[in-house]
Every structure is written in structure tokens, then in C-alpha cells.
């Protein structure tokens, strides 16, 4: 087996990781995740924390946000993300007004929204997963909370999820990703056109899709550079591989086996698409253990 492209949840990646390491096979993992991992047999083509969560916080700070409320599902990614957020907040003069977790799959958000509302926070950082997002945003709007008064930054809501929640509830809310369907550039126009031709005009592209797509091309470039399918040779050839991806230029970091990606903050529009309101200007070097951030020294 030359390479596998896949896995969605962190739990599934953790479950297969020992198998890949034992059999010395390659996995390309396409989803943003909680960082704190570096396996010689996994390439991470989604964002690690410093390419998604940290830029999200930078953006909130630049908008004058002084206090955030943390809402997440009760599992590894949100809890880890929120530890990072708390460390960032402490170092950057922000306060964390509250922190709540809902059991995975929970669809009852009365209490959390009630607490968020009474906290008077400037913004909400949302790391909820899946179905919980639907219930959370419906409750949020019903409680009279708006994107203008208390914006929510989400890290698990891409175009596909927007469709399942309803723009009625999401318009104006923020997301942090590396790619949107609306990202400019010739590479993306081609990607979006080809995707819609194959799967239908009403099917949007999204960040995890793009990261999976990029993974295949990066592997191709690695194999071509190595001149072989052999896993060790492919790994050795990986450092510095670049690809003109739909999200812009990406570069493989051979040491961490993550990729340098541009961080983008977007705003959800009435048409269900997300438009960029800010980007990092250049690709952000991956730093899964946040070693280059002094405020994060106690985290790993």
C-alpha cells in the first residue's frame, strides 16, 4: 500500500495511527485538528492550531474584542483548543467569560445560550461539532443574540455545514479556515468549476474537501521527486514540496509533516457562501506544538 487518504475525526486518526506506524505506511489526513501530534507516517494537510485558532484570536483581538465565551463539544479537539485560547487570552489581555461543553451529539442548548447571554462577552469562540451546531445557532438567534452584538467564530462550520444549519441562523457569523469556495485565484476557479461539473451546481466546496484534494497532489509531487513509491523515500523527499492549491501556495514542512497554509477569516453570507474578511497575507508555518509562541510554553 503506497498511501491512504482519509480519516475524519481525531478519534479515528488516533485509532489508526499505531497501525500506520507499525506497518510503515502513509496516511494523508485532511481535516483541521487539535495539534499536539507528529507522526512520521502521517501528513497533515488540514490546519493545525496555529493556522486556524490562533489567527482567529488575532482577528478578534484586532477587532477590539476584550472577552470571549468558549462553547465546545465535550471531546479532545474543543478542550485542547480552549486551553490554547485561555493561554492566548491570558497573554493578550483578553478575559474568558465562561467555558461550556456539550456532550457530543447534544441538541439542547438552552442552558449554554442562557449563560452566554448573561455573561456579556464580546464574542463567542465555537468549537462545537456536527449536529450540536445546528441546535446552538437556532437557540442563539431565538435568544436575540446577533452577529453584530456578539459574533460567533466557528472552526467546524464550512460551506457544507452552513447548508445543514440554515443561513437564516448564520448570516454574519464568522469562521476560521484556510480555504473558502469564494477564495480568489485561477487554481480555485478551476477546482470549483470541475467539482460542480461532477457533483452538481448546488454542491459547495469546502476547506476539508480542498485539503484532501491538495493531499493527493502533494503526494504525487513527493513521489515524482523521490522517483519511487517507497514510503521512506517519499518521506525523505517531502520537505519543501510546493503546490499551487485552490487556497493558494502551500509548502510541505518535512520536519513536522504539516503544511504551511494561509489563514483566512470569513463571514457567512445570505447565499450560504463564506467570504473572506481577513487573511494572514502569507502562508503560516505549521507549529503543531506551538513551540514558537512564548505564551503557549506551558501547554505541551
Amino acid at each position: 500500500m503506497a498511501a491512504v487518504f482519509g480519516c475524519w475525526t481525531s478519534a479515528s486518526r488516533k485509532a489508526v495511527k499505531p497501525v500506520f506506524e507499525k506497518n510503515k505506511a502513509l496516511l494523508f489526513y485532511p481535516v483541521q485538528y487539535e495539534g499536539l501530534e507528529q507522526s512520521p507516517y502521517i501528513f497533515y494537510t488540514g490546519a493545525t492550531t496555529n493556522q486556524q485558532i490562533v489567527p482567529g484570536l488575532d482577528y478578534l483581538k484586532s477587532q477590539g474584542v476584550k472577552s470571549v465565551y468558549l462553547v465546545g463539544s465535550d471531546y479532545v479537539f474543543p478542550r485542547t483548543a480552549n486551553k490554547i485560547i485561555k493561554a492566548y487570552a491570558a497573554a493578550n489581555g483578553m478575559t474568558v467569560s465562561g467555558e461550556d461543553y456539550a456532550p457530543l451529539g447534544s441538541t439542547e442548548f438552552g442552558t449554554i445560550v442562557n449563560k452566554v447571554k448573561s455573561s456579556g462577552a464580546d464574542a463567542v469562540f465555537n468549537t462545537l461539532n456536527g449536529d450540536s451546531n445546528v441546535a446552538f445557532f437556532k437557540e442563539y438567534k431565538s435568544a436575540g443574540l446577533t452577529a453584530a452584538a456578539m459574533p460567533v467564530v466557528s472552526v467546524s462550520i464550512a460551506e457544507e455545514e452552513v447548508k445543514g444549519i440554515g443561513t437564516q441562523y448564520l448570516e454574519g457569523q464568522l469562521t476560521a479556515w484556510n480555504y473558502y469556495q469564494t477564495t480568489p485565484g485561477a487554481a480555485n476557479s478551476k477546482f470549483v468549476a470541475a467539482y460542480k461539473a461532477k457533483y452538481g451546481a448546488d454542491k459547495p466546496t469546502s476547506d476539508p474537501m480542498e485539503a484532501a484534494y491538495v493531499g493527493v497532489y502533494l503526494w504525487k509531487a513527493m513521489v515524482e521527486k523521490a522517483g519511487a513509491f517507497d514510503v521512506e523515500k517519499v518521506r525523505a523527499a517531502s520537505d519543501g514540496i510546493t503546490f499551487d492549491a485552490p487556497e493558494g501556495l502551500v509548502t510541505v514542512d518535512g520536519k513536522t509533516q504539516h503544511i504551511a497554509k494561509t489563514a483566512r477569516i470569513g463571514k457567512i453570507g445570505a447565499d450560504g457562501l463564506i467570504t473572506e474578511v481577513w487573511n494572514s497575507g502569507k502562508p503560516v508555518e505549521p507549529d503543531p506544538y506551538l513551540k514558537t509562541y512564548p505564551w503557549a510554553s506551558g501547554l505541551s
Binding site: V134, K163, G164, G166, Q168
Partner: peptide, 8 residues
């Protein structure tokens, strides 16, 4: 498999 939306 993804969720669908309705307008309230």
C-alpha cells in the same frame, strides 16, 4: 447524510 435545513 448531511443535515438539511428548513426555514422557520
Amino acid at each position: 447524510s448531511p443535515n438539511v435545513q428548513t426555514r422557520a
